[in-house]
């Protein structure tokens, strides 16, 4: 049973054809790493899954919620899809706890009393229970990104989208964030991540998607693909990284 189904998705930015017919199936609990050169469409694909980018053709379905070209009401879909960004994007005027509680309160209309235990549990999960009353700018980049993960988790999504979530971090902070993501994977969360962390993609992922010029060029088991890339493009991409 597929949790995420992407069928023949096309997307243009002006005259630039960025996604040229993407088909992808992702099962519940799968950890998918999308890799590829910049400009290959990997971020656009990820962002179209929760409608941050509109699609021009095709269909995306997440846990029964359909998204098609020209669709404007995305709230039902977005409640099932959490997202973590490269730049954290915490709300600077709200405390850490308020960042995590805001969406459950405003979107799910839960009371603060009901939200607080959830928020505290999510912050504990990312190792930041004691930062409930801190402001985002009092935290390191790695801590901010972990709060962003807790904030997305508080909506109890079915899928988490991670858009290069370690790219803006100092090298010594990358591992604390990856450890949290790995824990989520172990607990069975479905993860779709655009990443440059190839070792993480190989060790934690169970599906690798290589994008090239707006298409899924190659996909399959990460360990196999890294050891044995079938196309010259993936070969040269892996070669350029190593």
């Amino acid at each position: 049973m597929d949790l995420v189904r992407i069928d023949a998705v096309h997307k243009h930015f002006g005259s630039n054809h960025v996604l040229k017919g993407i088909d992808l199936r992702i099962g519940a609990g799968e950890v998918v790493a999308i890799i590829g050169r910049s400009g290959s469409g990997k971020s656009t694909l990820l962002r179209s899954i929760n409608g941050l980018e509109s699609i021009d053709d095709g269909q995306i379905e997440v846990d029964g919620e359909k998204l098609t070209a020209g669709q404007t009401d995305l709230r039902a879909l977005r409640q099932k899809v959490g997202m973590v960004f490269q730049q954290f994007n915490l709300f600077p005027h709200l405390k850490v706890g308020e960042n995590v509680m805001l969406a459950p309160q405003v979107v799910k209309k839960m009371s603060r009393a009901d939200c607080e235990p959830i928020a505290k549990a999510m912050l504990a999960k990312v190792g930041l229970a004691e930062k409930f009353d801190a402001y985002p700018d009092q935290l390191s980049g790695g801590q901010q990104q972990r709060v962003a993960i807790a904030r997305a988790l508080a909506m109890q999504p079915k899928v988490m989208l991670c858009d290069e979530i370690t790219s803006a971090l100092d090298p010594e902070l990358v591992n604390e964030v990856l450890a949290v993501v790995k824990q989520l994977a172990v607990e069975g969360m479905t993860l779709i991540m655009v990443t440059h962390e190839m070792r993480f993609a190989r060790d934690v992922g169970n599906k690798l998607v290589f994008m090239y010029q707006g298409k899924v060029h190659e996909s399959g088991d990460p360990k196999e693909l890294f050891a044995n890339p079938q196309t010259p493009e993936l070969q040269s991409f892996i070669g350029a990284i190593n």
């Binding site: 941050l52 959490g82 960004f85 994007n89 969406a103 979107v107």
Partner: peptide, 23 residues
Amino acid sequence: IPRGQIEAASSLAMTRAQIFRHI
């Protein structure tokens, strides 16, 4: 206001009015 803030709020399923008021 950085676009990313609004995208983060959108991805949490907040409506435009909610985003304006809270974010």
